[in-house]
């Protein structure tokens, strides 16, 4: 390739990336800017891109709601628990499906995968009846968390990731007198950190943004998560967009923190050097 066409290619790639970045950043910017503009009780939300007057009134209105802090705490609790259980169970199951030989492993794995094809709406009502009517778990953390303890998608993700880890390390550990759980804990988990970080972030974000299920199984304002709570700023005649933006900005913080704390694992090739020269 000539250097001219190379430069042209880079220019096109850059242009695409800039547009993409712009499209990604604009909604966030809009949310952030909107949270500092007082548009209380307006039916239409038209924040200025560069605001003339900055106001913290939306934040005051958001935190004025009795349960606002509680919503965030609830979201943190629910998303954290779901993240931890998913990381634990999905990595265990993924390891078993990827590296352990046991009768029926393929059948079980495919049966699990098949469940991914069932739309969530189909299982919603039976799940609701199970949680609320049979287990009597209405308005509890357990009701929000239990159905999300481990997802098949995460098991699949982990199985694919674990398949890339060298099997000889597992054999070496087995000869090195390591127990099966010891192999998982001392050899597999440390090597799977990049995969687990991805899984943790995806799971946390997905659970944080979960709206419908927490709305269904919680009744009291104290048990709402942030996403459900924010909906209470939508009134019959108007919507307090400023307060919603303020709440959304506050609510985005834990995700930002999580992402940056796990970011290094995304790019870290931890298995480099394990095998071959």
């Amino acid at each position: 390739m000539t250097s001219k066409s190379k430069i042209a290619l880079i220019a096109v790639a850059l242009a695409v990336l800039i547009v993409w970045a712009f499209v990604t950043v604009i909604p966030l910017y809009w949310m952030f800017i909107g949270s500092f503009q007082d548009s209380a009780a307006s039916a239409v939300f038209k924040p200025q891109m560069i605001p003339e007057i900055w106001s913290i009134a939306p934040y005051e209105r958001f935190f004025h709601k009795a349960a606002a802090v509680r919503w965030i705490v609830n979201s943190v609790i629910v998303a954290s628990v779901v993240t931890v259980t998913n990381v634990f169970f999905a990595s265990l199951a993924g390891y078993a499906f990827a590296k352990l030989k046991f009768p029926g492993s393929k059948t079980i794995f495919w049966a699990l995968l098949t469940t991914m094809m069932i739309p969530a709406q189909v299982t919603l009502i039976p799940l609701y009846i199970l949680m609320i009517n049979i287990f009597q778990l209405g308005d509890t953390y357990t009701a929000i968390v239990l159905p999300a303890v481990v997802s098949v998608g995460n098991v699949f993700l982990m199985k694919q990731y674990m398949s890339t880890l060298p099997t000889s390390l597992i054999h070496a550990a087995r000869i090195d007198a390591c127990s099966e759980f010891g192999i998982y804990r001392k050899v597999i988990l440390p090597m799977a950190k990049p995969g687990l970080a991805v899984l943790a972030i995806f799971t946390f974000v997905a659970q944080w943004n979960e709206f419908f299920w927490p709305l269904l199984v919680t009744k009291s304002s104290e048990m709402r998560t942030i996403q459900v709570g924010l909906a209470s700023f939508v009134f019959a005649e108007s919507t307090d967009y400023g307060a919603i933006m303020a709440g959304a900005s506050v609510g985005a913080l834990p995700m930002v923190i999580l992402f940056f704390s796990l970011q290094r694992y995304f790019l870290q090739g931890i298995t480099v050097g394990a095998v071959k020269g």
Partner: peptide
Amino acid sequence: LHPKDRDIAMVFQDYALYPH
């Protein structure tokens, strides 16, 4: 007998060193 109880040690083709 489980590998750990056989009193053997093995050197693998790809060395199989624990990278972490």
